[in-house]
Structure formats: structure tokens, C-alpha cells
Computed example of a mutant assay.
Amino acid sequence: MKRPDLALILATALTQTLGWGTLFTPFALVVQPMEADLGWSRALLNGAFTLGLLVAGALAIPVGRHVDREGGKLPLVGGPLLGAAGLVMWSTATHPAVFYLAWVVIGCAHATALWTPAMAVVVALAREPMRAITLITFLTGFTGTIFIPLNAALVGALGWRDALLVLAALECVAAAVAWWQFSAAPARVATPLPGGGLRAALRRPAFWGLALCFAGHAFIGTAMGAHLVPLLRELDLPEASVILLAALHGPFQVAARIGLFLLGTRASTQVVGVISTWLLPLGLLWLALAPAEFTALLPFVLFWAMADGLLTIVRSAGTAEILGREGYGAVTGALTLVSVGPRVAAPILVALIWEAQGGYGAVPWLLAAIGVLAALAFLYAVMSKEAAS
């Protein structure tokens, strides 16, 4: 791999690892200490997190347009500083209004510092974008492995308020790394051509195929993230088996990305996308039909994790391959915006199904059906692209 790509990859992987580890991971670990300290309800606390996701989604297109026109320096340097400010504000919260305002700021940081603008820069500057994105996702795949125990240790040792201040300092490190990354890189990413970019993409069937696919994947991902552990516990598995099955998602995901990286240019993003989108409903159907035993459920985790790991790459590199690089930031911002609603609604909808039916029995079937629709939508996007070329 060429040296400029390596510097871009390492800097992006570090800023993304720090960003996700400080701006996304801590919430689940701070909720219960905040409940005990402030007496606030879990619904009130989760409302702020939801607000942050909505703010991030609303800003996705304007931030993407800025990256297309002016480059990624401002969002990728300023975003972590916004995140640090939001974490400091969160650490001082004694009233819900301050807490919610902190999450508005953190939502702005999500939109400017995390993934979509960073991938727009990689797609524009990397000599081999797919390999670069694959390696970045491999490195960032260890974010939870690093930051879940780190955040838990910080909260346990310092309390949740001081723990958030430490995380704010780490976000300042991310800003410094981003500043270094752009110090010798072009400030501008691309110059949009008249009539191109987002407006042209919105008129293409392939865009809407990708939008439906990624929205379905977002729904499944957040539903599983919120409900996997209680779903497995409902099967009366031993607690050690439940935790191990959930924990294996990360290593299996990284293994799939390593395999894709080793294939290099021999792997077409579109073919990888078709395979991974069908692996997702296959894994969910396996969950619905398999006996409630650890070994019988391993293929479910394997298929789900492989699909999840590969689709993260397809969402970035595949969009460029199918829709082109012109206006990439705004186009991927629009795809992110389409996924916000499903991402926010999924945990609530699955919880309502659980309450109505007294269990999770119907949930794997529902998610598998959504997975099939997402796979068909991706296939439609690929076929529409080929028909147009």
C-alpha cells in the first residue's frame, strides 16, 4: 500500500476509534450511575441520546456538502472539539435541560467527526479507497474492545462526571491528530460539477435501492444491539453462553474484514455487498430456527457478524462504486439521513412487540424479513447501476 494511503488510514482509524469510543460507547455505561445520582428516569436519559442521533441525521447532508466543496479539515478537526465541549457540558449536568443541550452538541459532533465525513475524505484522497476503508474498519473494529472496559474502569474509579472529563481530553487528542492529518493534505476534496452530486443521485433508482438497503440494515443493527442479550437470556441459555455469544460478534466481524482485505482488488464491492446482504437474513433465520444451545447458535453469530462487518465497508466503498465519487459527501449524508428513522425506531418497536407478545419469538422472523427486503434492495441498486452504464 502506498505511503500516503497508509498515513491517511492510520490517522483516520485513530480519530474514528477515539470518536466512537468517547462519543458513543460511554452512554450505556453512564446511564445507571446517572440514574442513581440524579434520580432521573431511564426514559428521560435515553431521550437525550435519541435527540443526539436525530441532530446528527439532520446535519448529515449539509456536512457532506461542505466536505465535497471545501474538504474535511473543518469538520474533522472541529468535530472532536465540539464533542469535547459536549462531554464537558454533560459532566456538569444537574438539570435535564443542560443534559439535553449537551447531547445536541454531541449530535453535532457525531455529524462532523464520525464516519461519513471521514469516509468522504478517504474516498476522495486514497489511491485504493476500498482497501483503505477495509483496513480502517479492521482497526476501528477494536473500539468496543478498548473503550467498553476503559469507560467502565473510569466510571468506577473516578465517578461518571470526572470520567466524562477524561473522555473530553481524549477528544482533544482526536482533534490534534486530525489537524496533523490535514497539515500536508489538500484542503479541498472535490469541485462539484453543475447538475451532479446529490440532485443527480436522487433521480437514480440505484440511490433508492441503497437507501432502502442501508435503512433496513440500520434497523436490524440497532434492534439487535439493544435486545440481543435479553433475547438470548429468554432462551434459558447459561449467562456465560449469552455473554460469549454476544462478545463473539466483534472478533467474527474483524475476521470477515481481514479476509476482504487479503483479497484486495480481486473482490468487487458489489459482489461483496450481494453476499453480505444475504448473509444477514440467513443468520436471523438461523436464530429463529436453531435449538437454544450455544453451539447451535454459533452460526447465527458468525453470519450476522460477517454481514455487519462487510456491510460497513460496502456502505462506504460500495456507494462510491455504484453512484460514483461526485458529490460523495452529500450523497452519503442523504443515505445516512434516510437511516435515522429506522435506527431510532427499532429498539422501541422491538420492545413493543416483546410487551405485546410476552416474548421475543416473532422478532427474529421480523428482522429476517427486513433483511430479505434489504438484500433485494441492494441487488436492485446493482442491477440499476449496470442498466444505466
Score class of each variant (00 low, 15 high):
D5K: 00
T15F: 01
W20C: 00
T22V: 04
T22M: 02
L23S: 02
F24V: 04
F27K: 01
A28C: 03
V31N: 07
E35S: 07
D37L: 07
S41Y: 04
R42M: 05
L44V: 13
L45Q: 11
G47F: 07
L51K: 04
V55T: 02
I61Y: 02
I61P: 03
G64T: 04
H66C: 06
D68H: 05
R69M: 06
K73F: 11
K73A: 15
L76N: 06
G78L: 05
L82H: 08
A85L: 14
G86F: 10
L87D: 01
M89T: 14
Y100P: 02
W103L: 06
V104K: 09
V104I: 13
I106P: 03
G107L: 00
A109Y: 02
A111I: 00
A111Y: 00
A118N: 10
V121E: 10
A126I: 02
A132D: 02
L135H: 03
F142C: 06
I148V: 15
P149E: 11
N151E: 10
G156S: 13
L164G: 09
L165G: 08
L167G: 03
A168E: 03
A174K: 01
A176N: 04
V177L: 01
S183K: 09
V189T: 15
P192T: 06
L193S: 13
A200C: 08
A200K: 11
R203G: 15
L212Q: 12
T222N: 12
G225T: 02
L228T: 02
P238R: 05
E239L: 13
V242W: 02
L245V: 06
L245H: 00
F252V: 11
A255R: 11
F261E: 09
F261V: 11
T265M: 09
V272L: 15
W278D: 07
L282Y: 03
L284H: 07
A290C: 03
A296N: 07
V301S: 11
W304P: 13
A307I: 09
A307G: 15
G309W: 10
T312R: 11
R315K: 13
S316A: 15
A317C: 09
E321T: 15
Y328C: 06
V340H: 05
V344I: 12
V344E: 08
A345C: 04
V350N: 01
I353P: 04
I353W: 07
E355Q: 15
Y360S: 09
G361H: 14
L366G: 05
L367P: 01
L373R: 03
A374W: 03
A374H: 06
A377E: 10
A377M: 05
A377S: 14
Y380R: 14
A387W: 10
A388V: 04
